[in-house]
Design a protein around this nucleic acid. Structure first.
Lengths: 244, 244
DNA sequence: CGCATCCTTGATACTTTTCAAGCAATGTGG
DNA sequence: CCACATTGCTTGAAAAGTATCAAGGATGCG
């Protein structure tokens, strides 16, 4: 089993940066403390100040905020290869919750180990921070989507983005991907009601664009979907952290 | 003229951290390259890779994304004391545009000067990064607002947040603040049509909560507005960067 | 079996947008 | 100084998009 197969993070970073043996070793060391969490129970709860970060190796997590009136807004998803809680570690500002959507496996990263790794391998630090800034760009794009796209385009855009992210770590393609999200997750993500999510999905399916059923997303007409969503993957495809 | 009065950034940071003479000196040095920009002409345009950051000393700026269909979504505002383009410098990922809303004054910060300042005064670096993470928290809160609040609450929340930010740098209070934004800016920020913004403002005014007129926001019933918006300033009031 | 979760559909009501029009203030060139 | 364009604000009426309420079906699981 190659190290890439073990760690989606390594696979993701390798797409953009040729990592040296030493860097790979440091990365591997960050993966030592393996933990699991069960679906549905929050790993971190809003307001809690747990200064731990994780590297997600399998499963899906979402980060969200609950409002006083009980509605919730999902801000972002973490899929294999993504960091989780990185900002809270560096800057202690986690004011949202993390919920595993399925049972997950993650590597726990201690602040000190992370800082040490950064000090030892600056190129790696740059690569990881680059990935973090990519996550931020996704939050911004999410904001734009909710603010300025109608329900169909929002859904289409979301599925396309998810597909791109998963493709990076080898668990998705332009054909489709497995997806454990419920329609309620989609509703809380896209700022829609669950009922309307259902209708939107039906319409996309009947238009022959994409099917989401039984935990699997199938793109029938990738180009058509891109057009509907006005999906421009520039914010995802950045050329990487321009390492010197 | 005290240095605090010269630089809203210093004023802002001083609220949370007692800065030493040395740190103040470093900060002052970052303010040396003063520049001005005229209202309405983009400082940075989407896709452009200008690796400059600025510290805004007077005036307002907004950062936004334009979509292929011509609609725009304002992601965030910068008011005096805010950094602008910090992320683009550190991580070169500016995929949005910056537009001065009025004529502005800003200090241009060179990447190298910034990194040097960080190296010299780690506490200052922490403070600045803390401010940056606060900005991120605002983007997240903005996302939640657009996704899960109705138009009235969205507007109320936005005005309250803006008031808090301005109060930090001494140009706003619970009574109100001067505000150069047009109803079109508000619409592009809140994901509403300009027409509806007008109606919402009217309703808030007629409810005796807040008036926005002739470039000035006046809070008539601060508590009532907080209640309507379910405004919880926790994400703004964090105790600062916990300096050791 | 019975309960819980998730998906699906229809009918209705509400929020927000779009279209259209008018007003006030400001600035500009003739 | 005036005609004119421009920008920002305001309002009404109609249309569209989305939420809410209600109900039923499917599946999995203790």
């Amino acid at each position: 089993m190659t190290v890439e197969a073990q760690s989606p993070l390594i696979r993701k970073l390798s797409t953009f940066v040729a990592l040296s043996e030493a860097e790979l070793a440091v990365l591997a060391r960050l993966h030592r403390r393996r933990r699991t969490f069960v679906a549905g129970r929050d790993m971190v709860h809003q307001g809690q100040s747990g200064q731990l970060a994780y590297i997600l190796s399998s499963g899906w997590v979402c980060s969200y905020k609950i409002q006083p009136d009980g509605t919730r807004q999902i801000v972002d998803f973490q899929v294999p290869g993504d960091f989780l809680g990185l900002r809270s570690v560096l800057l202690r500002t986690s004011d949202h919750s993390f919920e595993p959507i399925v049972d997950i496996e993650a590597a726990e990263v201690l602040t000190d180990d992370l800082l040490e790794a950064f000090a030892q391998t600056p190129r790696l630090a740059t690569a990881i921070l680059w990935a973090a800034s990519r996550d931020e760009a996704m939050v911004v794009e999410h904001l734009v989507g909710i603010g300025r796209r109608d329900a169909d385009a929002r859904m289409a855009h979301f599925l396309l983005e998810l597909g791109s992210r998963l493709a990076l770590v080898g668990i998705g393609s332009k054909e489709g991907f497995d997806c454990p999200l419920t329609q309620y997750h989609l509703a809380d993500t896209l700022g829609l009601s669950a009922v309307h999510v259902n209708r939107v999905l039906r319409q996309l399916r009947e238009s022959g664009l994409v099917t989401f059923r039984d935990g699997h997303v199938t793109f029938h007409d990738y180009g058509g979907l891109v057009e509907l969503a006005e999906f421009d993957s520039a914010y995802l495809d950045q050329s990487g952290p321009l390492l010197k």
